[in-house]
Design a binder for these strands. Structure first.
Lengths: 150, 150
DNA sequence: TATTGTTATACTCTATAACTATA
DNA sequence: TATAGTTATAGAGTATAACAATA
């Protein structure tokens, strides 16, 4: 019965969208409560830093596409990260239009240190869940990741 | 082994946070692509309208708490919704400081009409998933909802 | 005094458009 | 001409602080 399936999907999409947007807003708010200077990294700043940490070297354009933002938005993100000596630029070996971004030692140390603390609120919420609920979330996590990259 | 569990939770929190923030950004972007005037409702505007639709009557303060925003933010959301005749105000029967908000017929019609269309991008992504993936997401959805309200 | 809600103001994030340098 | 990246500008959304009205 396609109707039922469609209706089901629409309902799932609705609740997912509402939960996701509200959770994202909540995570943003929780971040604001952190007073440390090092915590003054926005979601997208940390996501970009983490991507660089993971991929070793990326151009601004690749980073923008990876994080699903427009290049000018990524330019500003990079400017902040560079200003704090968390990433550094290097010229592309053959194409002088391009820029190669890499994480600095400071950036690498910070991303590892910050990651744990940035998840504090969510991790705390997760610890309040039952084993079954955690298992359900763990099963859904890679799917959410795939959706976020599609 | 608590360490392993903690580490596991931290990893889950990390991937969840990244996926959630990226999905929320993606949903926001997809929304911008919709040209219809009626689609010019932000996430929070639709969420507030949906909450009113569901709860029949709420005060601005209740609505702000429900959606995890500060009262001044909700004031602006309500102003937009009222301007478009989607919600209406009524005086509280006993406490003249308070305001009772209800959805208008227009608002109720719109929320039902918009809901389906607003989910178009996500619903499309969901249709591309396998039965197993959908089942995993459906199992996780209520947990995400609970998290978003905690 | 405390509470509900609004107004005033500022900040962050993101986008589009226009521009520069290079291919 | 096309591409990579930046700069300029604008808009949306949210927060905190200060205020008004009522309890």
């Amino acid at each position: 019965m396609p109707q039922a399936a469609t209706t089901h999907d629409a309902g799932l999409a609705t609740t997912m969208r509402i939960s996701i947007t509200r959770l994202a807003r909540r995570l943003r708010v929780e971040r604001l409560g952190l007073g440390d200077t090092e915590m003054a990294l926005s979601d997208i700043q940390l996501a970009a830093l983490a991507a660089l940490d993971r991929h070793e070297a990326m151009s601004p354009g690749e980073l923008a596409e990876h994080e699903k933002v427009q290049p000018p938005s990524m330019t500003r993100v990079i400017a902040v990260l560079e200003e704090r000596n968390l990433v550094q630029r290097a010229p592309h070996p053959t194409d002088r239009r391009q820029v190669i971004l890499t994480v600095t030692a400071d950036g690498r140390a910070l991303v590892n240190r910050v990651r744990r603390r940035r998840e504090a609120w969510l991790a705390q919420r997760l610890q309040e869940l039952s084993e079954e609920e955690l298992a359900a979330l763990a099963a859904a996590a890679p799917i959410l990741e795939k959706l976020s990259q599609s």
